[in-house]
């Protein structure tokens, strides 16, 4: 019983949860509603989101409902963990830690900018049930050093301690990139401990996620940031699925952006860069969504469930934002990832 995951129970559970979560098939209904408040009402009537809604907020902003949706995802993963133990539990706990990372970054940014931190806790999404970090104490940290010392014992401590303060101040994203590098290397390590069949699926799916992040990072860095090719390569994440180190090196040292796009499409075997479509993020999300939801089995089923929850969340936000700015439905549909024919 030490290493155990009950797929039957989980699949039954996930099927049952579909009723209380929003499903892409309902997007048409959302689009028919006339304003954002009606959409929010519709969504928050669903059991899964209801309990996270803070009804004291009168005028919900994007941040506020994004948090509600994120919390619902975290709650779903928490529930899944109840059905597993051993290395499987470890792996999914690690997946949960990504949300912890989000909150840590929030606090850290406030520490760096020396902002008031009393309102941050409202935006926390980490799993309170499984978190090993005392976020309340972190909120009282005044300096980066204090913040670092409070992380002692967690997996982030090593990265924090080896990053000097100048590095953090020099580039805001430096630490974020470094922690996510650490995070994905741990996630891959945990995936490698799973049973043979699951290990194959899990490392592939995590690898595809890494590919997705790398392409976005390299493209943006080349286009917008003043960063040398060597650094772009260093900040890229390792252990991708399609993108080996040599392929990444080729991508990083391609000076012409058009050539880069062709090369990326070829490597990923997917048209991420379309001729007249500049919504790169959406294309990448779509790639990940399609690749992970196609023929998912065993652990793939669970991971694709998480990916689709995240995708639905992005889509809901796209719909609401689209409505807020009075975009016509046809325009909004361009921003939707999980479904193209509604």
């Amino acid at each position: 019983m030490s290493e155990f995951v009950s797929y039957q129970a989980l699949e039954a559970k996930i099927r049952a949860r579909k009723r209380i979560l929003l499903h892409p098939s309902e997007f048409r209904k959302l689009l028919e509603l006339s304003n954002t408040n009606q959409i929010l009402d519709y969504i928050f009537k669903k059991e899964a989101y209801k309990k996270f809604v803070d009804y004291s907020i009168k005028d919900m902003h994007r941040d506020d409902f994004e948090i509600v949706l994120e919390k619902a995802i975290v709650a779903e993963i928490e529930k899944m963990i109840g059905f597993m133990s051993g290395v499987y539990k470890d792996f999914f706990l690690c997946i949960l830690q990504r949300y912890e990372l989000h909150d840590l970054n929030l606090i850290l940014r406030a520490v760096i900018k020396d902002e008031l931190k009393d309102k941050i806790s409202k935006y926390f999404i980490h799993s309170e049930k499984y978190s090993s970090i005392d976020f309340n104490k972190l909120l009282h940290a005044r300096t980066i050093e204090e913040f670092t010392s409070l992380l002692k014992g967690s997996i982030y401590y090593a990265t924090m301690i080896s990053t000097n303060k100048d590095g953090i101040l020099f580039r805001e994203w430096h630490l974020e990139m470094k922690t996510s590098e650490l995070y994905y290397s741990i996630l891959i390590k945990k995936a490698n401990k799973l049973d043979e069949a699951d290990k194959k699926i899990a490392t592939r799916l995590v690898g595809e996620k890494i590919d997705r992040l790398n392409i976005e990072w390299i493209y943006r860095a080349k286009k917008y940031y003043d960063v040398s090719n060597e650094e772009i390569l260093i900040y890229s994440l390792g252990k991708g699925y399609k993108l080996s180190y040599t392929r990444m090196k080729n991508l990083c040292y391609t000076e012409d952006l058009e050539k880069f796009k062709l090369l990326a499409n070829k490597y990923l075997n997917y048209t991420v860069f379309e001729a007249n479509n500049d919504l790169l993020e959406k294309r990448l999300d779509k790639m990940l969504y399609e690749k992970s939801t196609k023929n998912a089995s065993k652990i793939g089923n669970l991971l694709s469930y998480i990916v689709s929850l995240e995708t639905i969340q992005e889509d809901i936000i796209a719909i609401i934002e689209g409505k807020r700015y009075d975009l016509p439905d046809i325009e909004i549909k361009k921003y939707l990832v999980s479904t193209s024919n509604i």
Binding site: D166, G167, R171, H174, S228, E231, Y235
Partner: peptide, 14 residues
């Protein structure tokens, strides 16, 4: 400057 940037990106502890 270039060297310093690269060193910073690999968590160089001077």
């Amino acid at each position: 400057q270039e060297t310093k940037n690269i060193l910073a990106s690999v968590n160089w502890q001077k």
